[in-house]
Design a protein around this nucleic acid. Structure first.
Lengths: 159, 159
DNA sequence: TAAATAGTTGGTGCCTCACGAACGATCCCT
DNA sequence: AGGGATCGTTCGTGAGGCACCAACTATTTA
């Protein structure tokens, strides 16, 4: 076990994160439906935009999803031509996944469409605070994804 | 409609929220299992601590869950004596739900136990940033009014 | 008295997702 | 060249979350 510091403020964000994510997701579903997307598609696209050019295995690690379910997810996105699977020239077993132009555009559209949903859920925060929140979430999301262990970056990825 | 400037920076937190919540939840499940809790129990307890004394209908609205599913959730928590259902004296149809002492204690324990999980997920943020994140999430979650000034703030000796 | 409301119970069905098994293609090592 | 490991793919299975419907009790309100 780790040492127990007498931290007076036991402020765990987990439950709040869960709560807000749920509220956001419920609204996102209806907003994204006309765009042919689901919340989890948006998560994948966002991750891909942040650190594109990853193999599907790495993507499974980042999203912490089973790799077999990644396939279906990417099939959806590829069918809509929002992502591309290209075989890696270095290792032809690998599929390098990247956003297409359409994908980036659709992601942007989705983000615009989600403005209303975010207004509802994050209504208590002013724009500056929302930007701070975004920045923190973004750093937390990409930081852990890129820097965690050395095992992920087997090859010379964009790490 | 809205006067949102269409900058190149359409910073929507929804997907990031979803992503991080998932990663946190995956870790929370195994951590909370020994305590007999599940992530969604923790969400309910957290909400109850923030604004206790609500009816179940109100709780369903806050958590945005179907009220029939709220019943089962509260049954779990009441069976463990972490919450109490009392009939409201004003309207005897209503069940006023509140944390018990055991509930507050268990919640604190859970939050302590989640330190490791949070370290993994929010590893890219330093303590000050995590506190900022918590504060933003907390404000967003409880709406605008954080009348926490008079709240009990039990978390001092339990850790 | 009649209608509306809060909670409870039971049941149904859909969707997500983790997990296992099998397969082709490819790399890597000896 | 051969054998084992790895990446991606497909299929199936099962557990669990959750929305929804229907019926019922207790209580408030018009």
């Amino acid at each position: 076990m780790s040492a127990q510091p007498l931290d007076s403020s036991e402020h765990r964000s987990g439950a709040l994160l869960d709560h807000l994510a749920r509220r956001m997701r419920l609204r996102s579903e209806s907003v994204l439906a006309p765009l042919g997307l689901r919340p989890r598609h948006l998560v994948a696209l966002t991750v891909l935009r942040a650190g594109g050019g990853t193999g599907q295995q790495a993507l499974a690690t980042i999203l912490e999803m089973d790799s077999t379910n990644i396939v279906g997810l990417l099939n959806d996105l590829e069918a809509k031509q929002l992502i591309e699977r290209r075989r890696s020239p270095e290792d032809r077993r690998r599929h390098v996944v990247e956003l297409t132009e359409d994908g980036a555009k659709r992601l942007s559209e989705a983000e615009c469409a989600l403005a209303g949903a975010e207004d509802e859920v994050l209504g208590a925060l002013d724009p500056a605070e929302r930007e701070t929140l975004y920045e923190l979430l973004s750093r937390a999301s990409t930081g852990t994804a890129v820097s965690c262990t050395e095992a992920i970056c087997v090859a010379d990825d964009t790490c």
